[in-house]
Design a binder for these strands. Sequence first.
DNA 1: AAAGGGTCTCGCACACTGTTCGAGCCGACT
DNA 2: AGTCGGCTCGAACAGTGTGCGAGACCCTTT
Lengths: 257, 257
Amino acid sequence: MRSSEGFTGSVWLRPPRAQTGQPALSREQIVRAAMELLDAEGPSGLSMRRLGTKLGSGATSLYWHVANKDELLELAVDEVLGEIYVPEPGDTTWRVGASISANGMRAALLRHPWVIGLLGLHPTLGPNAMRLGERLVALFTAAGFTGMPLSHATALLNSHAIGSATSEAAVRSALKRTGKTWEEVAQDVEPYLERLAPDNPNYEKWRQETGPMRKDPDQVLDETYAFGLERLLDGLEMWLRDDGAPAADGDIGDRRG
Amino acid sequence: MRSSEGFTGSVWLRPPRAQTGQPALSREQIVRAAMELLDAEGPSGLSMRRLGTKLGSGATSLYWHVANKDELLELAVDEVLGEIYVPEPGDTTWRVGASISANGMRAALLRHPWVIGLLGLHPTLGPNAMRLGERLVALFTAAGFTGMPLSHATALLNSHAIGSATSEAAVRSALKRTGKTWEEVAQDVEPYLERLAPDNPNYEKWRQETGPMRKDPDQVLDETYAFGLERLLDGLEMWLRDDGAPAADGDIGDRRG
DNA sequence: AAAGGGTCTCGCACACTGTTCGAGCCGACT
DNA sequence: AGTCGGCTCGAACAGTGTGCGAGACCCTTT
């Protein structure tokens, strides 16, 4: 069986295995252990052999419960999505609900940064991903969205969480890997920036005017994310008010500039 | 030398190698060839040995020009960022300029989907990434942004491009991998969705009301991206008009809901 | 009680990976 | 003529994902 010979062969669409013997090893257990390895040491920390010994069993035993390393990773990704909480429509404002959802997604991705590199490989349609979709649809329906724009709006929210988390994970991993502080890194990069300064006049000017980073990177990254989220929610709210009802179905008014 | 013992050891901060002998192999050539392999066969298609034979040289010769496979990938990522065009401030409206930039970023990421999985690993500060930053600063400065909000605004634009491209790449890669059409995939997934239907009432209802996908996935993905971009630009424009001038420096007015 | 069959574990083996090391080549400068 | 630095490369090492087939265990049927 080829590693992925179609959607029909995907983990999610395949019926689960029957189970009568002595398990000693279960899919959930394997996935959980894999996540622990990934959280602790990143993508390179997970190998089938290491996972096997961590579970006290042979490496190839895993292949009874999981077709593939790829499939194992898919399962792990869905597991992470299961950590995200999306409020019920009645619990709060739509806007706050959307914020909580996006915050949760961002937090989950930053808690398990290895997920970020996997999101672009397969569409995740595991049960937790579906539940996430369900809850978001509920939230945005209650807010007044319908049809394709509803799907577009939830996609926008997710995109922001994913995109932000990607950028954040990059700098966070650099800080962690080097073990340096924000100031030390800034000092290291300084001469490089100065060498490039003649080519980047606008950036340099902005950098001079804004001055050195006074806040720690956590706070800056939080603010960057939060600022974007507010702008995006403003945009959605505005669309809901202005164009939502009248132009219910027709073409979207993009490329208007 | 450890693979990455700090920012000081990063490719970008290290002075380039002196060069007098007979090159026969150059860093640019290597990076270009690596990109070709990656574009053609994805991340698993690139191995140092294959890259070596593609260039007609021994695999280990590459290690003279490049410290690492990781470093090679960093160089390739920056190369991709070099394909993105950002208009000059005077060329168009700010809004159109931002759209063009984001469109370019999204297109570049979809042309080279392997980049997506690498963006979260290291912050890219190669020359092309810097140039990108420079141009965006120019564009957003001309639009009236200053200080931290300027940085937040550009980050938002990039996040949208990255996040959208991630989601898109997932479905595009699935379609390509399985070789199936959109309708065939939908048919494959159908029974799974119906099995989960009782748990996802809102999603199901939305699905029923919206009806089957009439358009091809390219168009749907384009629309999703474009819708999000417009909402986001609306939000930025609104902020620029309302809060931009008065609250120039202080805390950002987030968490307002 | 015996036989059969499914579930599950696992050692071996294969092809392949990234990377180190040290030997050697070749052109240029002294 | 000799040395030196840039550059190439083959051999080797430790480690990877995974296919295969032998077996162990337990439940069911005869």
